[in-house]
Design a protein around this nucleic acid. Structure first.
Length: 933
DNA sequence: GCTATCACG
DNA sequence: GACGTACGTGATAGCC
C-alpha cells in the first residue's frame, strides 16, 4: 500500500514514552540478574496499550516510534549551550535505552532514529511528507516543541490525558496559530532546552507582539516602533540571539531519511519474536497478557530466584484473570465447600453487591468470595428478572439463587470468626451492609487502605487504579452491566450469569492485591500506620455514618424560603444597576456586564478567555460601584440555598430522619478524611447568616450536642516539629499565640497590641503552615508585596527554626520522594523535582503535609480510642471536622462525656509521640450545632 | 465533563 | 512586567 490520501500516520515520541515509564514505576530489576528493567517494562506496557487501543476514526494505517540518537546534533553546532543544562541520564536508565529499541522491533513497529538529528526533526520530516501526500498525521507526544507542526491534517495526541491537540489547542497554549509558534518560542526562549530567547519576554508577551506585527521578522525590522523602552531595547540589542533562538526551535522538515513512509505500514507482531523478547525480560504478567491476546500459550518463565523475594517485582505467577472461570454458587452443598475452604485457609477476600451506592438505602444482592488467585465464586441472593420497562409487569425472583437468610446464617460464623481474616477493597462499605444484616464483620484487612498507607500522594486507591497498576488488568467496568444515566439499572436487575463474572472478579482482584501489598507494608515501614491509624478506623467511621445526625427539615425549608425572597429582591436591584436583565449566576455574563458594558477597571481574563469574577475581584470593585457588592450578597445567598438549605433536605434519610454522610478515608493525601454525600465538613460558620444553617443540626428530644475541638493544633505541631522555643513557651503558658507572634515580630509589648498588628501576625502564622510566599501573604492581607516579603523575612529572623524546618523538609522530600508525619505516615511528593510552577506547588505541599498530616493522625487516634472511652455512657460520636468531634449525648451525661472525650483527645498523641506542647481541647454544648460550636 | 466559584479546616 | 504562587478538601451552576 502506497502512502497517500486516506492513510493515517501515527508518530510516537519514543523518548517521552521512556521517561514517562521510567518515572512512573518503581526501580524494577530483572529477577535472574538484577538488570534494571522498570522503564522497559513500562515502555512495553504503554506500547501494548497503545497498539491494542481502539483509536476509532483516528486509527493508524502507518506507525513508527521515533527516538533521539546521540547527544550532539546540528543545533549544538549553531549554539554549543543548546540543552546544556539537561541533567545527566539516571544511571539505571542508560542500559535500558537500547532495550526499548528492541522492544519496539519486537512489537513489529518501525523504530527510527538518526545520528545528528533529534527525534523531533524526524517527526517533522515524516509529518511534512505525509501531509504533502494528502494523509493524516497523529503525533503522540505532548512536547510543545512539536506544536509548530499542527494543522493541515496534522494533530497531536497527549496519550497521558488522552486528549487530541489541534490548531485551537496550540493557539490556547501559544496564543498564535501553529505557523507562528516558532516565532513565539524564539522570543520566549525555553529554559528546559536552554534556548535563550529575548530576556524579559515570556509566551504571553511574545504572542502579543507577534500578533501585532504579524511575524518575527517584521517585528525585529520594526522594533523601533515599540513603545515600552525596555522591550524595544531588548529586541534591538538581542536581535542576533533571537534569530539564533528561532533557528534552534525551528524543526527541520528535510532530514535525509533512509526509509520511506511506505516502510511504516502497520504490521501484525510475530508472536514468537514478541514473546521471546518479553520472556527474556522476564515480564511475567505482560507475557501472559499478550499471549492471551495473540491466542497462543504463554511461555513459562523460570523462577530463578525463588528465595530472595524482590518486593518491587511484578505480580507473582498467577493464572490470568478470567471472569468466565468463576463459580456460580447455587446450592448449599456448594456453599459448604467454600465455607470449608475458607476455614481451612484462615482468610478470604470478600465483596458485596447491592442495589445502591448509598449504604443506608442499599439492599444486599449477592456476595462474592475468593481464597486463591483465579478461584472465586459469586453467591447471588436477590436478583430479579422480568419486569422490563413496563411499570405494571411483575418482577420475580430469578432462578439459581439460595435463600438470603439461610446463606447469611451459614456465613455469619465465618464473618465474625476471630481466626478468619476478611479481606476487602473499601471494607467500610461492606461492613455497613453486613451490619444492616445483623453481621458484625471482623477481623478485616482492606486493600484500599493498604494502598493508601503505601502510596498516598502517588495515585488514588480505587479498585480500577490498583488493578491496572499492580495487576495490569482492567476490571469489567460496572457500566457494562448497569448502563449509565437515566436508563441505568440496579445490580439486582443484572442477569446472574453476567453478575458472576463481574462480582467474583472483584474478589479475585482484591485477593491478588492483598498478596502484593501485605509484604510491601513491612518493607516500606508503614505497617504501624496501617494497623494503628487506618484499619481500626473502619468500624468507627462505619458506626458514625450509620448513626447519622438529626437535621430539622422545617428549619432548612424556612431558610430556603427566606433566601429565595432576598435573592429575588437582589436580582431586581442587580438588573437595574446593570441596565438590563441577565443571568446573575453566570460568571461569563457577569464579566461581560462589568468589564465590557460598564467598562469597570481591573478586568482580567483567565485561560478560558472569560473574565475572572471571583469574590476577591468583586470586593475590589465594590469600592467603585454598587453592583459588585450586590452580586456578592446574591452569591452568598445562592450558595447557602443551593448547597445547604435546599440540598441538605434531599439528604435526610426517609427511614431514619437523619443525614448520613460518608467519609472517604483515602481521599486526602495528608491523612485527613473527606466527607461526601453530603459533605458535612464544610457547613457554614464564618458568617452570621451561614452559621444559622447549623441551627438545623439538632439533638433529639432529651439529648444535647457536644462539640470538642483542638485549639490551634497545627500551630502547636509546627512549634514542636520546627522546635520554636518562643512558640512552645507561649503555648505552655497558655498565651494568645497570634498576639505573642506579633509582639515578637513587631517589637510591640503585649499590653499595647492592636487588632491590626495581631491580624497580620495571625495571617503569617497560617501562611507559614502553608509554605508561605510573599505573593500569597500580600494577597491575603491586601498589602504591597514588598511589605509582605519584609514581614516574612522578619518572621524567619525571629524564628529561625521555621526556615530550617522548611528547607530540611524540602530537602528530605527531594531525597526520598516523600515526607512523613510524626507518626510515620508517608505522603509522597512525586512532583518535588518538577520544573516550572509545579515545583512551587509541590514544595509548599511538602512543607504543609507533615503538619496537616500529624494533626490528622492525632484526631484519628482519638477517634479510634473514643468508643472504649465512652462505653457505657449514653452517647454517640457523630461527626469529625478535621479538628473537631461532634457528639450526641443524653443531656444529663453531657459533662461526664466532655471529661472523658477531652481526656482522650488531649492525650491522643501519647504514648507513640511525646509533644513538647500541650494539646488543648475546647468544648461546647447546646440543642443544636450552632450553640454547641 | 470541564471551569469557576465558594463553603469548611 | 518570564511564569504563577499559601495547604487540604467537595458541591453546585453554567456552559460546551
Amino acid at each position: 500500500m502506497t502512502f497517500g490520501k486516506g492513510c493515517h500516520l501515527h508518530l510516537i515520541d519514543g523518548s517521552a514514552f521512556i521517561f514517562r515509564a521510567y518515572h512512573a514505576l518503581p526501580p524494577l530489576t530483572r529477577k535472574s540478574d538484577g538488570l534494571p528493567i522498570g522503564a522497559v517494562s513500562g515502555f512495553c506496557n504503554m506500547l501494548f496499550r497503545y497498539v491494542s487501543d481502539d483509536h476509532g476514526a483516528d486509527a493508524p494505517t502507518h506507525v513508527a516510534v521515533i527516538f533521539d540518537k546521540g547527544s550532539h546534533t546540528f543545533r549544538n553546532d549553531m549554539y554549543d549551550l543548546y540543552k546544556a543544562n539537561r541533567d545527566e541520564m539516571p544511571e539505571d536508565l542508560r542500559p535500558q535505552i537500547p532495550l526499548t529499541r528492541d522492544a519496539t522491533r519486537a512489537f513489529n513497529i518501525a523504530c527510527e532514529e538518526m545520528e545528528g538529528y533529534e527525534a523531533d526533526d524526524i517527526i517533522a520530516t515524516l509529518a511534512c511528507q505525509a501531509r504533502d501526500l494528502g494523509g493524516r498525521v497523529t503525533i503522540v507526544s505532548s512536547d510543545k516543541d512539536l506544536m509548530q507542526l499542527v494543522g493541515d491534517g496534522v494533530e497531536m495526541l497527549d496519550a497521558m490525558k488522552n486528549r487530541r491537540i489541534d490548531v485551537e489547542g496550540v493557539e490556547e497554549k501559544f496564543g498564535v496559530k501553529p505557523d507562528r509558534v516558532v516565532d513565539v518560542q524564539a522570543l520566549a526562549g525555553d529554559s528546559v532546552d536552554n534556548v535563550p530567547g529575548a530576556p524579559g519576554i515570556g509566551i504571553k508577551t511574545a504572542a502579543l507582539l507577534i500578533n501585532e506585527f504579524g511575524s518575527l521578522e517584521e517585528l525585529l525590522d520594526r522594533a523601533e516602533e515599540i513603545k515600552q523602552p525596555k522591550r524595544r531595547e531588548t529586541l534591538i540589542e538581542k536581535r542576533e540571539q533571537i534569530e539564533l533562538s528561532k533557528k534552534l526551535v525551528q524543526l527541520d522538515c528535510n532530514t535525509p531519511l533512509e526509509f520511506t513512509l511506505d516502510d511504516l505500514e502497520i504490521k501484525e507482531p510475530d508472536p514468537d519474536t514478541l514473546l521471546s523478547f518479553l520472556t527474556e525480560m522476564e515480564f511475567r504478567t505482560l507475557t501472559k497478557r499478550i499471549a492471551d491476546t495473540l491466542h497462543v500459550e504463554a511461555p513459562v518463565i523460570p523462577d530463578t530466584n525463588p528465595a530472595g523475594a524482590n518486593p518491587a517485582e511484578e505480580a507473582p505467577d498467577w493464572p490470568a484473570i478470567d471472569p468466565s472461570a468463576y463459580e456460580h454458587v447455587q446450592t448449599m452443598e456448594a456453599l459448604q465447600v467454600w465455607i470449608d475452604r475458607i476455614t481451612a485457609r484462615g482468610y478470604v477476600a470478600i465483596d458485596t453487591e447491592t442495589t445502591s451506592l448509598n449504604e443506608m438505602q442499599a439492599a444486599l444482592v449477592g456476595i462474592s468470595l475468593a481464597v486463591t488467585p483465579g478461584e472465586a465464586c459469586y453467591i447471588p441472593l436477590r436478583h430479579t428478572e422480568g419486569g422490563s420497562d413496563d411499570l405494571f409487569s411483575s418482577e420475580s425472583r430469578a432462578e439459581g439463587q439460595l435463600d438470603p437468610e439461610t446463606v447469611l446464617t451459614a456465613l455469619k460464623p465465618i464473618l465474625e470468626d476471630d481466626a478468619i481474616l476478611k479481606i476487602g477493597q473499601n471494607m467500610k462499605y461492606d461492613a455497613k451492609i453486613f451490619a444492616q444484616n445483623g453481621v458484625r464483620i471482623a477481623p478485616i484487612d482492606d486493600t484500599m487502605l493498604m494502598s493508601y498507607a503505601l502510596n498516598s500522594g502517588i495515585h488514588n486507591h480505587g479498585m480500577d487504579t490498583l488493578s491496572e497498576r499492580y495487576l495490569s488488568h482492567q476490571p469489567i467496568p460496572i457500566k457494562e452491566l448497569l448502563g449509565t444515566g437515566k436508563s441505568a439499572i440496579t445490580f439486582d436487575k443484572v442477569a446472574i450469569d453476567k453478575a458472576v463474572g463481574y462480582a467474583a472478579e472483584d474478589a479475585d482482584i482484591t485477593l491478588r492485591l492483598w498478596h502484593i501489598f501485605k509484604p510491601q507494608l513491612h518493607t516500606a515501614r508503614v505497617t504501624t500506620v496501617y494497623e494503628t491509624l487506618e484499619r481500626p478506623l473502619v468500624p468507627v467511621l462505619a458506626q458514625m455514618e450509620r448513626h447519622g445526625i438529626q437535621v430539622d427539615r422545617d428549619t432548612l425549608s424556612r431558610m430556603s424560603g427566606k433566601f429565595a425572597q432576598k435573592m429575588a429582591q437582589l436580582e431586581d436591584e442587580i438588573h437595574t444597576l446593570a441596565g438590563r436583565k441577565f443571568n446573575v449566576g453566570s460568571p461569563k455574563q457577569l464579566g461581560e456586564i462589568l468589564f465590557d458594558e460598564m467598562s469597570l477597571e481591573g478586568g482580567k481574563k483567565g485561560k478560558t478567555g472569560a473574565y475572572a469574577t471571583g469574590a476577591d475581584v468583586l470586593e475590589d470593585l465594590a469600592t467603585e460601584h454598587e453592583l459588585p457588592a450586590r452580586i456578592l450578597d446574591w452569591r452568598q445567598l445562592s450558595k447557602l440555598k443551593s448547597t445547604y438549605t435546599d440540598a441538605l433536605q434531599d439528604h435526610i434519610d426517609p427511614d431514619t430522619g437523619r443525614v448520613h454522610t460518608s467519609y472517604v478515608q483515602t481521599g486526602a493525601s495528608t491523612g485527613r478524611l473527606a466527607s461526601t454525600d453530603p459533605n458535612l465538613q464544610n457547613i457554614p460558620v464564618r458568617t452570621e447568616e451561614g452559621r444559622r444553617i447549623r441551627e438545623a443540626f439538632v439533638a433529639p428530644e432529651g439529648q444535647t450536642l457536644l462539640s470538642l475541638d483542638y485549639s490551634q493544633i497545627e500551630l502547636r505541631i509546627l512549634a514542636h516539629i520546627a522546635d520554636i522555643k518562643q512558640l512552645k513557651q507561649a503555648f505552655a503558658d497558655g498565651l494568645d499565640i497570634h498576639a505573642m507572634t506579633a509582639s515578637e515580630m513587631f517589637d510591640v509589648p503585649l499590653d499595647e497590641m492592636t487588632p491590626e498588628i495581631r491580624r497580620r501576625a495571625k495571617a503569617i502564622n497560617f501562611g507559614v503552615i502553608y509554605g508561605i510566599s510573599g505573593f500569597g501573604l500580600a494577597r491575603q492581607l491586601r498589602i504591597p508585596r514588598g511589605d509582605a516579603q519584609d514581614f516574612i523575612n522578619r518572621y524567619f529572623e525571629r524564628f529561625p527554626g521555621i526556615k530550617t524546618y522548611m528547607d530540611d523538609t524540602v530537602a528530605f522530600a527531594k531525597e526520598h520522594g516523600f515526607v512523613q508525619t510524626l507518626f510515620g505516615r508517608k505522603i509522597h511528593t512525586p512532583e518535588i523535582s518538577a520544573k516550572g510552577p509545579r515545583a512551587g506547588f509541590a514544595r509548599r505541599a511538602a512543607i504543609n503535609a507533615p503538619i496537616q498530616g500529624t494533626a490528622a493522625d492525632i484526631i484519628r487516634r482519638a477517634m479510634i480510642r473514643m468508643p472504649a472511652a465512652i462505653e457505657g455512657l449514653p452517647c454517640k460520636m457523630l461527626l469529625q471536622v478535621h479538628d473537631e468531634l461532634l457528639f450526641e449525648v443524653e443531656s444529663g451525661a453531657a459533662d461526664k462525656v466532655i471529661t472523658a472525650a477531652r481526656d482522650v483527645m488531649e492525650g491522643a498523641a501519647k504514648p507513640a509521640v511525646h509533644l513538647d506542647v500541650p494539646l488543648v481541647v475546647d468544648a461546647g454544648q447546646g440543642a443544636n450545632w450552632a450553640e454547641a460550636h
